[in-house]
Design a protein around this nucleic acid. Structure first.
Lengths: 340, 340
DNA sequence: GAAGAACCTGTGAACGTTCACATTCGCGCC
DNA sequence: GGCGCGAATGTGAACGTTCACAGGTTCTTC
């Protein structure tokens, strides 16, 4: 900056004013400075600016580094929304579901004096230690419960799962199984509870339930277990995500069960591939773009207001009907009789 | 830091020495300072440290924000490798394939004075303007060609595609089609060339070739076009990635063609789901963990050496045989005869 | 017992900005 | 013609660190 100033015969302050385009600078001076900036390839030093002005244009984002569709997608959308608002994003991935690693990651972000932190850790563990760690740093929990009061963007997982289950009930299914993920995850627990409560509300007994690890392999193996131990005791299956649903589809096909004729399957997430499964998957869509945008908006509001007034935003998932669900075998028979 | 110093009755410099655990500080002083640090919840200010020491512990990563498996996975692995080396990562996503946006993103990273930048933009466009933009900033191109000499991590896309094509030839296929992605992408072009050159080497005429956009939908539609216009003129298909292969599989199944009996398909990437397609997909695996780790390692080397000595690392993909490929129909007949 | 080494600690400057304030200049007005 | 005013520009300090060096002990050594 001093170089630029020297070249134009003005003071560094004038250069600063031009860079931040403040009004009180003469038109020709501004032009001269801009030219010198161009020629010298001057770039403001964010670090120095940040240090002296005591406000940062960097947002922190903490999330699982699993490579799963949801987290990756959220991350991308957070970055885009941040960029649109003039912020950069520092990403910290959590490889293990481990409180110490989370602490480390958040600490790191705080050391960099980010303007605020988005925490996307949909775990059922107590993260209230973060309250002390981030005394003056605005926080937003994304689809997560940190164990203390924060601003948050919450996805109505339970109502998504209810839509899925109700859809199957409406199709005449009475024995509906569940392929859930570990209840250590918020989304998994809520989706599981949605399944359970919807069945209860319809006065149906819950079908068999098996657990897997969000992956296709997990879904495949869990579905095989379901087939081996509970075959005949269910005509439909609610699955915790689309990847697991893919694995389940393969397991049923290999067992000779036709989908959706003998068994209906509904997934969760609506990954871009699920419309091309065999059969195309009926599922519940999460709008990750909206989640990311709302998260950033919420964080920015809080940064603006100096941390006052926590807000909670809600994102409602959408039910997407494709070809992996059909009327229950018995219902189909009845339907056929009615047709005559 | 001054607070900590005051509390222990030492100077800020001594605190600094404890924080950076330098050797020349008495054991009991160190303990006292550490205790005060703990009590006051002191965290070093990376911004100030960075400003004065003129070296950063932040790496920049520029990549497509498409949500595709490859880029997301690379990003995650880069972050993890960087973390292991004590660095943080600032991510800049590119939404449009647009030189101006790339310039903006890199400029932003440079303004933050990152220690180095990883560029993962596998495009066939001239990015030589980056050379001037990043005068003194170490660069590493990941699976990309920037149009000027840089350190790089390159994936042997062409040899991956050759393995896939050769596998089909070895199975007796003589008419092999190609479902490629836009040649504006480096990977797409190299994979396409691998297909072409392998056929040439085997003295076979290239089968029909259609282009799609990396997505399942694109693959589905392109495969339908292939079926409509070229049915009977190919018995096998090399596809640019697994997502497109999934779309293609659905198109063939819907057209009544059985896989792999009537048509063999081989994908690229080995996404975690591809082992659970129907049928499980034969594909070429890219080791994204290795790509990410090598990229960071390469960048760190360059940062260490002050930008001297550009190196190129190479990653070789692995062929994964599953159930979507089988001997060509004619070859199968011959095989059957031999069996008798 | 003095010189020097080894160890520990403190001081002043610098990094590249912004902020609050001071200064200069030209102009209109009574 | 002096006064006040607004517009344009400059000055000094500060942000929280590290770096280079200087100072002060204590211990060793001849």
């Amino acid at each position: 900056m001093t170089d630029v100033a020297a070249r134009c015969g003005v003071s560094y302050q004038t250069v600063s004013r031009v860079i931040n385009n403040m009004p009180e600078v003469a038109e020709d001076t501004r032009a001269r400075v801009l030219k010198a900036v161009q020629e010298l390839g001057y770039r403001p030093n964010m670090t120095a600016r940040h240090l002296v002005s005591r406000r940062s244009t960097v947002l922190g984002h903490v999330s699982f580094a699993t490579g799963l569709y949801g987290p990756s997608q959220t991350m991308l959308n957070v970055e885009e929304a941040a960029k649109d608002a003039g912020y950069s994003v520092m990403f910290a991935g959590i490889a293990e579901e481990n409180v110490d690693e989370i602490r480390r990651a958040v600490n790191e972000l705080c050391a960099h004096r980010v303007a605020g932190i988005l925490i996307h850790l949909p775990l059922e563990i107590d993260l209230s230690m973060l309250r002390n760690l981030c005394q003056n740093v605005p926080l937003v929990a994304m689809d997560s419960d940190l164990g203390f009061k924060t601003s948050a963007v919450l996805v109505k997982q339970k109502s998504g799962s209810r839509m899925a289950t109700q859809h199957l009930i409406d199709l005449g299914h009475r024995q509906i199984a569940c392929l859930r993920a570990s209840l250590a995850y918020r989304a998994a627990r809520l989706r599981y509870q949605g399944w359970l409560s919807t069945l209860k509300a319809a006065e149906l007994n819950p079908g068999p339930c098996v657990e897997a690890d969000w992956s296709s392999r997990g879904g495949f193996e869990a579905a095989r277990e379901l087939i081996k131990n509970h075959w005949g005791k269910f005509t439909a299956l609610v699955v915790a995500n689309d990847q697991m649903a893919l694995g389940a589809i393969r397991a049923f096909r290999e067992a000779g069960a036709s989908i959706p004729d003998e068994i209906s399957i509904v997934g969760f997430d609506d990954i871009p591939e699920s419309g091309f499964f065999l059969p195309p998957l009926t599922t519940v869509q999460q709008d990750f773009v909206k989640i990311g945008k709302l998260g950033v908006q919420c964080l920015l509001e809080q940064i603006g207001s100096g941390g006052a007034g926590l807000r909670t935003y809600t994102v409602v998932p959408t039910f997407i009907e494709r070809a992996s669900t059909a009327p229950a075998p018995r219902a189909r028979l009845k339907l056929a009789r009615n047709d005559k």
